[in-house]
Structures are given as structure tokens and as C-alpha cells.
Amino acid sequence: MIISDQELSQNVVPATATRRKSWRDSVGVLSLKTPAISALFIWSIIPLLMTIWFSFRRYNLMAPDRTGFDGLGNYRYLLTDPSLALAIWNTVLLVGSVLAITIGLGTLLAVLFDQEFFGRGIARLLVLAPFFIMPTVSALVWKNMLMNPDNGFLAFTMRSVGLKPINWFGVAPLTAVIIIVAWQWLPFAVLTLLTAVQSLDGERKEAARMDGAGPIAMFRYIIWPHLGRAIAATTMIESIFFLAIFAEIYVTTSGGPGFASTNLSFLIYRYALMEYDVGGASVAGLVAIVLANILALFLMRSFARNLDA
């Protein structure tokens, strides 16, 4: 049965300009997001505001009755405290060195483990192992069983080749911490970069080989440019964790000797839970936040570009 258009257009509800919001914007969908977003919002904003609030107050947990507004007192006190500058410097050193070691070595190892060799699967699992060791265990094991100048394994190795063992935590405490953290995080860098290397199109590598590229040229012109995104991601994730390194220092050096291995995290812990100075700890906390945000600004920008949301 065929009906003309004229007939069809009779008895039609007239078009209206106003439209109900479509159902996907509806309360239903919004309510799916709200719990997670508000939880994260509260988690990220309330403590931050409190930290800012405390940073202007005189507040020591040991003297709970002597509280009050202190203006910039905490800031003046902390910013003139030489330990802050040292802690910032240690933090930068720690983050920078571990990043350099893990990314540099990680790239080389990623290329190595991308090759065909016997037992590759198992070897890869072995390389990965340190990443899953809880930080307190790795730190304790390195401190007592590997780096101990007397009966540690490293001391034994050095003695056997005729060298004098190093008293790691006495002479180079920060270096020792850097080694431990780098050992923990190298697997992550290797794994990430290896994943990236493997996602490289095999035909592109073959084409380059046909064009006469040797191993060096292959790395320089084909693999390295391909890794940019993975390196950016690895740098960002690692920075997040390295800025907050705490347990490794807590169980090995407790920030010492003196302040030699105190980073910002540990400085805040010292202020807050060893000296009970809430105001001072809060100022140091803000310094850490500012530092993290400077870093984040660079990282997020490069990351947002890669984001396919």
C-alpha cells in the first residue's frame, strides 16, 4: 500500500524548538560517575586545604594548647632551615639519577631482550622480579645482606677482587638509596620499553634491514624515534613514585647521617611524626606539592598529547 507524502504529513505533532535532554546526559549516567569523582575530589582537595591551613598556624602536637595563627612564621622558619634546601637537592638528585639510570639502562636492556635467544621467556621473568618485591624487603635486604661492609655480598665480592669494601650507608648513603631504588624500578622501565619495542612493526624493521641498516643504524633511526611515547610515559610514572620515596630511606638510613639522605618526603615525616611540628611539616608538604606540580606540568602536557581519550 502506497501513501502519498501529503497524507503522511497530516495529523502530525508539530515540531517544537525545546527538546528534552537526551537520556545519555540523564541523571542515570551522571550518577554512575559521581561516587568515584566525588571520592577522588574529596581525597585530593580536603587534605590539601588542611595542609595550607596548618601551614599558617602555630601547632605542635606535643604542645596542643599553644596554637594560633602564625602568619608566615612557619614559612620563615622552614625556608631558612638549611635542611630544606638539602632535602630538595637530595630529592632532585634522587629522582634525576634514578630516572637516568632506569631509562638509559632500560632502553638498552629492552633492545637486548627483544632479540631471539634461548630461554627468553624465563630470563624476562627474572628481570621483572625486583619490581614485585615490597620496598621494605628490598631495602632491608640490600642494607643487611648485600651492602653491609662486613658480611654483605658486595663486600665479599670486592674483597675477592682485592678491593676495600665500601661502607655504603656511612660514606655514600644517598648513592646507596639510589642504587636500591634503581634496582627496584629498572624492571618497570625495561618492561615498558620492551613492550614499546615489540609494538614496532616488524615489516618496518625488515625494510630497514633491506636498506642496509646495521644494529646501530637500526637503533638510531628506527627504534629510538619509536620509543618517544613510551619514554615519556615511563618518565612520568616513575617521577610520581620517585618524588614520594620513603620506605627505602626509612628502613636504611633514616635520613642520615645527619640529613645526608633526607629527601622531602622524609623531611616532612621528620617534622610531623618525629618532632610533631604540624605547621613546619605542612609548609614542607606544600613545597613537595609545588615541586611535584612543576614536574607534572611538563609531563602532563606531553602526556595529554598522547592521550586518545
Binding site: L48, L264, A292
Partner: peptide, 8 residues
Amino acid sequence: PSVGVLVP
């Protein structure tokens, strides 16, 4: 950083 909000 977690330490930034340790006190609160």
C-alpha cells in the same frame, strides 16, 4: 605526593 598531605 602523599607526603604533602601526611599531616592532615
